[in-house]
């Protein structure tokens, strides 16, 4: 008994020691920069620096919340990102399950590798390709639609279809890469379980539902919770490369707004860091609240500690 206590204690110290490097680096490079949040409460003057700029209390927040464009962008962000979250989660899961059902290993690998390709083409490039592909007059996709007797759709220039276009393209680009995590988790499934199940007469869907799925639930919950933290990130890289003035109404998101009026702005000007920082802080608080809530709920109702 005495021996094991000693061992336990030594394990303790080893565990703490392992945390030290990560804690130090995080303190310096992640907590250190948080001092920059003061900018959100300043009229930031870059020649005076972080602590020399005049304080303005909550003026920056008042400014952004009064901005019609901000409120609109907030709404757009929420609707686009929540859709992306749902479909961006669900689709890779479905594909992983289906991939798992392919019995020819070679084919499975080929497909796995191919669906993972779009992830590597940057949005800048894709914007060019998609611009051609989705054009209502000359685009391939509209050609097909017209052949089938539908009316052409201006995917990128029509404010009412633009968000859907963004969501579909985002899911398309990311689902292959997204399957990696789930497929890795599926390698943990014991093959004998499948055998036993088929002996019992379970069909494919039963097996998928009762054996494969439960294996994925923890990672799905985990991934879903962590994605909630991104609810106010609706995909800057994608949208900034594909949107245009005509779709601001439904496609302008917080990040593109900040970039347009806060960072780049009029070319011959200086960025409004305080606006960017205030919006950033606002986003952080929202993510924090959502993550905390889901952490608490998972803990309380499922007795599952996400992290």
């Amino acid at each position: 008994m005495a021996k094991s206590t000693r061992r336990a204690r030594s394990v303790h110290w080893g565990l703490y020691a392992m945390l030290v490097p990560g804690i130090i680096l995080t303190l310096i490079y992640s907590y250190g920069p948080l001092m920059g949040l003061v900018i959100a409460f300043q009229k930031f003057d870059f020649t005076k620096g972080l602590f020399g700029s005049p304080w303005v209390g909550f003026d920056n927040f008042k400014y952004i919340f009064n901005l019609r464009d901000f409120r609109r962008a907030l709404g757009n962000t929420l609707s686009i990102s929540s859709m992306k979250l749902v479909f961006g989660m669900a689709f890779p899961i479905v594909v992983s399950l289906l991939l798992n059902e392919i019995r020819f290993n070679g084919l499975k690998r080929v497909i796995q590798t191919l669906i993972y390709l779009p992830f590597f083409i940057s949005w800048v490039i894709l914007a060019g390709i998609m611009g051609d592909l989705l054009s209502p007059s000359t685009g391939f996709l509209n050609g097909i639609l017209k052949m089938l007797g539908f009316k052409g759709v201006y995917f990128l220039g029509n404010a009412s279809v633009f968000p859907a276009t963004m969501i579909v393209l985002d899911v398309w680009k990311g689902f292959g890469f997204g399957t990696i995590l789930y497929l890795a988790a599926l390698t943990g499934v014991d093959p004998s379980l499948y055998e036993a199940a088929s002996m019992d007469g379970a069909n494919r869907f039963h097996r998928m539902w009762h054996i494969t799925m439960p294996e994925l639930v923890p990672i799905i919950v985990l991934n879903g919770t962590l994605s909630l933290g991104n609810i106010l990130n609706a995909g800057f890289d994608q949208i900034t490369n594909m949107y245009s003035t005509v779709v601001y109404k439904s496609g302008d998101i917080l990040d593109t707004l900040v970039y347009r009026v806060g960072i780049i702005g009029v070319r011959d000007s200086i960025p409004q860091y305080e606006i960017a920082t205030s919006i950033g802080l606002f986003k952080s608080l929202v993510s924090f609240a959502l993550i905390s809530a889901s952490y608490y709920l998972a803990h309380k109702f499922a007795d599952y500690q996400i992290f």
């Binding site: 901005l67 005509v246 601001y248 000007s269 409004q272």
Partner: peptide, 19 residues
């Protein structure tokens, strides 16, 4: 005021024109 608002105003002007 230009330093503060020019970018926002230009963005609005652009949108107004296109719309």
């Amino acid at each position: 005021a230009m330093l503060d608002n020019a970018a926002q105003l230009q963005s609005n002007a652009e949108e107004m024109i296109i719309n």
